[in-house]
Design a protein around this nucleic acid. Sequence first.
DNA 1: TCAAAAACCGAGCAAGCGCTAGATTTAAGA
DNA 2: TCTTAAATCTAGCGCTTGCTCGGTTTTTGA
Lengths: 189, 189
Amino acid sequence: MTLPNNSKRRKELVAIAARLFFEQGYERTTVRMLADAMGIKSGSLFHHFNDKQEILCAVIQDGMESAIEIADAALADVQGAKARFRALARAHLSTLLNDRNAHVVALYEWRSLSESSLSVLIGMRDHYEQLWQQVIDECVKEGVLKGDTPLIRRFTLGALNWTVQWYDAEGEKTPDDLANALSALIGLN
Amino acid sequence: MTLPNNSKRRKELVAIAARLFFEQGYERTTVRMLADAMGIKSGSLFHHFNDKQEILCAVIQDGMESAIEIADAALADVQGAKARFRALARAHLSTLLNDRNAHVVALYEWRSLSESSLSVLIGMRDHYEQLWQQVIDECVKEGVLKGDTPLIRRFTLGALNWTVQWYDAEGEKTPDDLANALSALIGLN
DNA sequence: TCAAAAACCGAGCAAGCGCTAGATTTAAGA
DNA sequence: TCTTAAATCTAGCGCTTGCTCGGTTTTTGA
């Protein structure tokens, strides 16, 4: 049984699953809850996915793909290390906070993935982190940052990813404001 | 049935639970796994705890208590905003990475807590964050930091808490090294 | 128009879950 | 020593879980 990976219907289902996984966590979300929210019966779910874990994988994969796309677009045609850092930070927060469901799930639920799903997603994550690594390396080369560059990357991504814990979309600050504030904090303004 | 909260045996059990919750996540850890690791039968667990969720709460509570203790001790007798910031960062990473089980559980599993457990733990968390807020406010007053102080607190704690994702205790860097590197990154060296 | 494919339903199975309750063993204190 | 309380065991209940499967409906495209 080979299931189509890119069907339109499947994309819809994945978006719904992302919302439920975000709201209650993967393990606490039952296939019956998922089916209910999708307007189908629980058995029908397994026509689209081989098992529950595959839904989780699809959620995270979709999130990663769009994050990489947006980051690539944000860096294109931007010159200068400082500007590139700020552009990447803005892109990161914009996906993270707009497409919040999928990204929070990605950050918190990787433990429930199978080995094979993991290896796919780790590849994508590494690719994304390399984007950051390059930009931070440029910053050090241009002399606008100092220190251990992998460490700076990790601190930066930590500060940014942590925003999902407290950011209030109804508040007065935009994701761009946050990106600028973080850049300023480490002297890149 | 009122269960004693501070028995020595209970503390041991909580430490074991912390390890399992850290390794596999709260929801994936069954009471039978917990009992096995504790060397008792699953039924006996409920002599010490009213329900599974109470074990989770105890794990997090123990972690928070020791974190607050260590932070208080680290700040005592330290003068000057920069030094106090660095002391607090060192204390934070030292507890976080040494008592890793409990703290990772605290960061990742709060969703499974009951309302009443939550309200207790949120109180402790707020108390701890206030320590940070004060120190960062001092930094701005002394002119060694600039910007929105709650935002700086959140970025800082994000960068620090994220270390649990990648820090390798067998590696060459100590928690103190990390604390110093972060301080340097934001100009507090 | 009509056959093939895709989507879905209904019913339910086997396993595992948190938790209970009564009996039994172990430890503690007077 | 003897009483009482704490800790553990044995056995299993009731429920939910992820998932299956044969059959039905809907959609698609030639």
